[in-house]
């Protein structure tokens, strides 16, 4: 079942279209306890990873996120790793604002510890 959670001042937009293998996370992610917030997405992706579509794309475009979220995001990415392992054409698209080296680096941190293709997109202002 697809997810459509609107962004709030502390939590990002989360939208899925799993029939097409599409997931979007965008906004700011600073909930004090991110486990409850990300659980629906993690459950949906766990199910998706059992029988993924032929291609899968996760678009991530965050302003900033706290360390509780960073761990949940890693869990999300690890599920994409499982999808990739089943030969689905998979990519995590990490978007960041122009000149935001810190956010670019955050994407590279994840890329370094995961076995799934990343594509980096700098978003002009």
């Amino acid at each position: 079942m697809d997810i459509n959670i609107e962004a709030s001042s502390k939590t990002p937009l989360i939208k899925t279209n799993l029939a097409d293998g599409k997931v979007e996370i965008s906004g700011r992610s600073i909930p004090e306890n991110s486990i409850d917030f990300y659980k629906p997405l993690l459950d949906a992706l766990t199910h998706f990873a059992e029988n993924p579509s032929a291609s899968a794309e996760l678009n991530v475009y965050l302003d900033y996120f706290n360390t509780s979220s960073s761990k949940c995001l890693l869990d999300v990415f690890k599920l994409f790793e499982q999808v990739h392992a089943k030969n689905s054409s998979t990519v995590i698209v990490w978007k960041y604002d122009e000149d935001d080296e810190d956010m670019q680096e955050a994407g590279k941190d994840y890329q370094s510890i995961l076995n799934v293709p990343f594509r980096f997109e700098e978003i002009a202002e």
Partner: peptide
């Protein structure tokens, strides 16, 4: 980051 685990309070 790779080794982080959640605490009871949801911190990493």
């Amino acid at each position: 980051l790779d080794e982080a685990e959640f605490s009871d309070q949801g911190g990493a």
